[in-house]
Design a protein around this nucleic acid. Sequence first.
DNA 1: TGACAAATGCAAATAAGTCGCATATACTAA
DNA 2: TTAGTATATGCGACTTATTTGCATTTGTCA
Lengths: 141, 141
Amino acid sequence: MTKGLHDCSEELRQVELKVTPARLAVLDVLEKTNKPIDIATIIDYLEANDIKTDPATVFRIINSFTNKGITKQIQLNEGKFRYEHASKKDHHHLTCENCGRIEDISDNFITDIEGKIKRNKKFLVKRHSVEFFGICKQCQR
Amino acid sequence: MTKGLHDCSEELRQVELKVTPARLAVLDVLEKTNKPIDIATIIDYLEANDIKTDPATVFRIINSFTNKGITKQIQLNEGKFRYEHASKKDHHHLTCENCGRIEDISDNFITDIEGKIKRNKKFLVKRHSVEFFGICKQCQR
DNA sequence: TGACAAATGCAAATAAGTCGCATATACTAA
DNA sequence: TTAGTATATGCGACTTATTTGCATTTGTCA
């Protein structure tokens, strides 16, 4: 049993989710990928690693993860959701509309704005989604 | 022929889209609503106003509008798109997770960030999506 | 180890959106 | 004003993303 797997088991127990092979495998992809990933990609990964699961199960797993705060649901103006491990520090994405590459940028400005929104609008911000779309360095050549 | 209708016709001609009843009606809902609206709501409105159309047509209309820059596609972490008239000045939304109300806030901070992104990351931002979710004033009581 | 709740697999259902094709309609130019 | 043409629409089928019900399996914990 590797350290990696052990950590993931802990993570599941802490949110009172049973430790199952499918869940460990999904946690595994999320860690390996480190970018917002869609369900189809997760399923491909599981298949490639001979972990037999049903798509419905993967959807259920990801939903339980999101409910428990293990993952965050993200939308990049596609007709589907992507997911990212919630342990990543506050950050946003730069999505290249040409090659699809997704870069991260740190979030060191939204907090101020949320304070402003609270003062001016009396709206209590609980979460935000900040996404940038454009052309990445490589594709500008 | 009302002034309203005439304006909408102009808007369509300017982007080389033929002026049809369905398109005028969709432009009409978009103006009346003034908030990001989903396809189902547009269809409901058309039905309520006895404008006979097929859902496929509405999807096609909205897509052509978005391609021509008449509307903007927006995602509020639902499994679908919403659309908003592009003539609205740069702004973002505050979506209440309790009652669903959508408020606007003006955008007077993102421009700076895009300059920073360009300098630091050499990523050329072409558009952004900035959404806040939380609890609105009314629902905080 | 056995019981029980929770997780999974499978199949079917739903929702959002797309596509092909035949027909209808808006625009253009005569 | 009208005929011709390109475009838009309606309809039906289809795809993709996601959900749900239900029977079965599997973690967990005493």
